[in-house]
Amino acid sequence: MTVDSQGAVSTASTDAPGSAAGTSKTPPPPAGPKNVPKPPRGRRSLPGGVLPYLLIAPAVLSMAVLLLYPLIRNVVLSFQQVGRRELITRKPEWTGVENYTELLGDSQFWTVVVRSVVFTAANVVLIMALGTLIGLLLNRLGKKMRLVLSLSLILAWAMPIVASVTVFRWLFDEQFGVVNWLLRTLGLSGYEQHNWFETGFSTLVIVMILLVWGSIPFVALNMYAALTTVGSELYEAAKMDGANGWRTFWSVVFPNLKPFFLITTFLEIIWIFKAFAQVYAMNLGGPDRGSETLPVFAYIEGQGQFHYGVAAAISVLTIVMLIAAMSFYFRLILKQEEEQ
């Protein structure tokens, strides 16, 4: 302890190292390399905005080759007259919009359009309703029963189209069909060798059963997966408020899974509207072309009647209808995002 000239007392700690010399140590330099390595000259990294486009370039090129080019060729073909003579001479005749005007003025075309729209609407309503119910059932079952039901759904979904059509044709066969046998066993009359494919309406009903049976697994499994994202506390709150099953679904499940219902419904509309193999393989669009939908109508006009230009015009109009449905869907999606 020292006393200066003015009587002030100052102390210095003798325990701190270096205090005797009147100096203080500076902290050691940080560990690690002193110089940051620079990339070697001649190698430059790609700009950040270019790399994503390079990554998606193979997929875009594949889609352009497999989808865009055939679509352009189909649009060009729709403005041409291509029949047997043009196939032999390889000189198609340009007709402008004649194929479209012929179709739009054809009552048979509009009959097929209405039939396709009604057929699609009936299928989608049944698929979404039954698929949602089965999805809710999967969410309530135990592990073992859920596994059994899930495997059954996957097996139905994985069955090839031609094989499933063959099974359904056998089920509704006129002479050896299981459906006729079952109805006769139940005591119903008039089903002795009943022909279920006698009319276009009955044929489409059988096709509808086939499509619903094959599409329910997709909706049910996706519904179950979506339900796992809904918190259990929401169900408990609804139960405490005295809500029944329907009220719980409408007030808790549906608002939280509204995007799921929108995208699934939209995918089912596309799937059913463009369904071809099931309708054609069931009864070749008959009888008397009474079970034709737009894809089958285009195929028969092209391959059966050799009106390839008209068939191309039918397919273009089908794409336009699907684009109209897509625009409606995207408008709903944008509206929902604005509400959020």
Rank of each mutant, 00 (worst) to 15 (best):
A8G: 05
D15R: 13
A16G: 08
P17A: 15
G22M: 06
K25M: 01
K25F: 01
K25S: 06
A31D: 01
A31N: 02
P33T: 03
V36Y: 02
P37G: 01
P39V: 11
P40E: 12
P40S: 11
S45Q: 10
S45E: 10
L46K: 07
G48V: 04
G49A: 13
V50Q: 13
Y53P: 07
L54S: 05
P58M: 05
P58K: 04
A59I: 05
V60F: 11
S62M: 10
M63F: 15
A64G: 15
L66K: 00
L71W: 12
N74K: 08
S78N: 08
G83A: 02
L87T: 03
R90H: 07
Y100Q: 03
E102A: 15
D106W: 06
T111C: 08
V112T: 10
V113K: 15
V114P: 07
S116W: 09
V118F: 11
F119W: 14
N123K: 04
N123A: 14
V124H: 09
V125C: 10
L126A: 10
L126W: 08
I127E: 09
L133N: 03
L136M: 13
L141C: 01
G142M: 08
K143M: 08
R146D: 09
L147D: 15
L149F: 10
L149P: 11
L149H: 09
L149W: 05
L151Y: 14
S152W: 07
L153M: 14
I154T: 07
L155D: 04
A163I: 08
A163R: 00
V167I: 14
F168C: 06
L171G: 03
F172D: 07
Q175H: 09
F176C: 00
V178T: 08
N180R: 02
N180S: 14
N180Q: 09
W181V: 14
L183M: 09
T185H: 08
G187P: 09
Y191V: 13
E192S: 13
E192T: 11
Q193D: 14
H194N: 08
F197E: 02
T199Y: 01
F201A: 14
I206W: 12
L210A: 10
L210M: 14
L211N: 12
W213T: 09
P217L: 10
F218K: 06
V219Y: 05
L221N: 04
M223R: 06
M223D: 06
A225S: 13
A226V: 00
G231F: 01
L234D: 05
M240C: 13
G245R: 05
W246K: 04
W246Y: 11
P259T: 03
F260M: 11
F261V: 00
F266L: 03
F266H: 13
A275Y: 13
A277C: 03
Y280F: 14
Y280P: 12
L284R: 01
P287T: 04
P287G: 08
E292V: 03
T293F: 12
T293A: 04
L294N: 02
I300H: 06
E301R: 11
Q303T: 12
Q305G: 01
Q305C: 01
Y308C: 00
A312N: 02
I314D: 03
I314R: 00
T318Y: 03
I319T: 11
I319R: 03
L322K: 02
I323S: 10
I323R: 05
A324G: 13
A325D: 02
F330A: 01
I333P: 10
L334C: 00
Q336W: 06
E338V: 12
E339L: 15
E339R: 15
Q340K: 15
